[in-house]
Structures are given as C-alpha cells and as structure tokens.
Design a protein around this nucleic acid. Structure first.
Lengths: 202, 202
DNA sequence: GTCTATACCATGATAGAC
DNA sequence: GTCTATCATGGTATAGAC
C-alpha cells in the first residue's frame, strides 16, 4: 500500500478525485451527475466506472480524499504549545484560516452533516470529523473547567465553523463587514469570548 | 390577501406545502423529485403544476411556509424580559427546544446555508434568517460588551445551532451522552459559557 | 382542481471494441 | 484505461379531457 493511506491510488484516479472535489462541494451528492464529473475531468462516464464501482463510491472517496491531511494538521497544533490558551488560540486561527481559505473543505463538511444516509454518515464522520474532534477534546480537557468536555469541544468548533457556514448569508444581514470574515478577526473574537465571556466588559 | 401573508393560499396548496416540508428537509432541493412529492401528497405530478409554476417555486414556498411563525416567537421572547442575561437565557432555551423538536426546521436551515444559487439564497435568508437575526442582534446590543454586535450575534446562534447540526455526527464521537441533546442541558451550558467564559472555574 | 397520457431529456450503469 | 454505443429508468414539464 502506497503512502497515500487508503487502498490503491493510480495517478488517473487521484486526478479524478482532485477535480471532483469542487463539484461535490458545490452541489452535494444528489446535485452532481456522473456525466458532469466526466465532462469536468475530461473523460467519458464509462471511464469513471473503471476507477469507481458507482457514484456513491466516487463521492465517498472524494470526500475522504479532500479531508486527508487537513485534520492531521490540527493534531500537531493542539499538541504543540504548553499553555491551554495558547493552544486554543493557535487552533482557532488555524481552523478559521482553513475554513476561510478552503471553501470546498467547509462545504463538504456541511454536506456530511446533512447526509440522510446513516451508513454514509458513519463512514464520513469517522474519516473526517473524528480526528479533528479528538484533538479538540484533548484541548478542552486541558482547561480543567466546569464544562463537560464533549459540550465544550462542540462549542469551540461551533464558534468558528458556523461563522463561516453563514458567510454567504451574513452578507445579507445587518451589521456585516468584510473584515468579519478575516480569520484573524474571527479567531480573536472567539478567543476573547471563550476566555472572558460576556461578564467582564473590557 | 388572507392572513397567511404570502400571496394566495388555497386549502389544497397549504396541504401540499405541509406534506412537502419533510421531503425537502430530508433530501434538499436536488434530492427530491416532483414524482416523489406527488406520490407522498397523494396526487399526480401534473396536479402539482396547477399550484406551483415549477419545482423551484414549490421549494421556495415550502421553505418559506415552514419558517413562518417559527421566528416570530423569537422576537417576543427577546423583547419580553428586562435583564439582558434573562433574555439571553430565554432565547437560548427557546432556540434549543425548537431545533431539538423540529428537525425539519433545523435541516431546512442547513439547506438554505448550503444553497449554491445566490438569488435563492437571498430570498430565503431574508424570509427566514433575517427576523431571527435581528432579534438576536438587538439582544447582543443590550449587553454593551466589548464585542462587535454582528460577531456576537452569530456566536450566540452558533453555539446552539451547530450543536444540533452535529446531533447525528456526535453520536459517533467520543464523550457523547444522550443528555447532551436535551434543550435544557444545551441552553444551560451555552448560557454559562457565554456568561463566564473559560477564565473563571466554578 | 385533478386526471391520463406523453414529450423530451438526463440519469446511473453496462457491454464490448480498441 | 478509455472509448462508442446503448439500456432502462427516472427527471421536469405540458396538453387536454373531465
């Protein structure tokens, strides 16, 4: 098995996955046809079936491929620094940067959360969310706070993830400014809120 | 124009919308066919086209119908109490209860956030998100905190919304307990976190 | 306001040549 | 490993009877 990590991966196969990420990110499983994929990749639909058993497998492999390495970075960041707050801030900045920069990553995450097929959900959550979540939960535990680690982990992820999920929608809502989507701004806001809460005005 | 608020609404039309909510909530615009809707409603596809110009209009009207009244409740709750923290806690509980109880509402919200069509996004955000957001922003302002009102509003919504967005996924992640999805638990956790932050251990 | 019938196109998937 | 050709099915939408 090659360095990639998941089964065998020919050059052509990898190139297909690479070019398919954007399509599934934009329209989801049901919104993308094999013909569209084929056209975009520059082959015929039949050629796709040489590399993937069916559309479902292509989708699963595409999402897994897109998430690989993305979350491995999180582990390192969380494990690196000693002070919990320093780790938290490093993670928040990394997460905000990643979501801001990699729209495909963000959207695929949203598609995974909306997936109606339980088995597909299971596979994707384990392949995608679980490593990221484990890293955050480790961080959450290091605070030795009053909060439940599971709840706190989700809260930390929420504050960054949901902000970028609503990126397009917020442009239509009052009080929006372009600077609100800058990763540094978001990370600082969330770090402040998590550290001090609303109780202590500056 | 009748009390409903949006154009004309016959009895049959309303019944179609009512029964279609669940389908679009589960599978989104691309994942639902007019045949499926017709079968589920108990008519032929042709009958649907008597009430709705096309599939897109059926989708838009369904989402708008599902959101109507849902968010009107939020305004009252936020406006009611005097103390900002009391209002906040009342809102958090209402929001958690609504998302926990009304899975269709929650899922439609997620579909709206993922919609790739800018014009559809514009219509739906204004019809759905904007009233809820205005209520929260009013609340956020009342804290007179150091935080940007827009950012703070999204943070408040994030902590509850994302928690329930990840409901299915979290069942597969470590540390999950059934009690974590009880509205009272979520609301209390979020209220504590927002009030005190991580800085002040109990 | 709902039906039958249907036009017409897109879909996932396969067989078999090269 | 990719092609051409094809199939069966399902997709949106319409015409016109009742």
């Amino acid at each position: 098995m090659p360095a990639g990590g998941v089964a065998d991966e020919g050059k052509a196969r990898t190139q297909i996955l690479e070019q398919t990420i954007h399509l599934f990110a934009a329209a989801g499983f049901a919104g993308v046809s094999m013909r569209t994929v084929a056209e975009h990749v520059g082959v015929t639909p039949a050629a796709l079936y040489h590399h993937f058993a069916d559309k479902e497998q292509l989708y699963l492999d595409t999402v897994k491929y897109a998430f690989r390495a993305k979350t491995a970075a999180a582990r390192k960041i969380v494990a690196a620094a000693g002070d919990p707050f320093a780790s938290l801030e490093a993670f928040l900045l990394w997460f905000a940067q990643t979501l801001a920069r990699e729209g495909n990553f963000r959207k695929l995450l949203q598609w995974v959360l909306l997936d109606a097929d339980p088995e597909r959900t299971r596979q994707l959550v384990q392949e995608t969310f679980s490593e990221l979540f484990a890293a955050i939960q480790q961080l959450a535990n290091s605070f030795k706070s009053r909060y439940d680690p599971h709840l706190l982990s989700i809260s930390i992820i929420s504050l960054v993830a949901f902000h970028y999920q609503t990126q397009d929608a917020r442009k239509l809502l009052p009080g929006n400014r372009a600077s609100h989507d800058k990763p540094a701004t978001v990370a600082r806001h969330v770090a402040d809120l998590l550290r001090h809460g609303l109780g202590a005005p500056a």
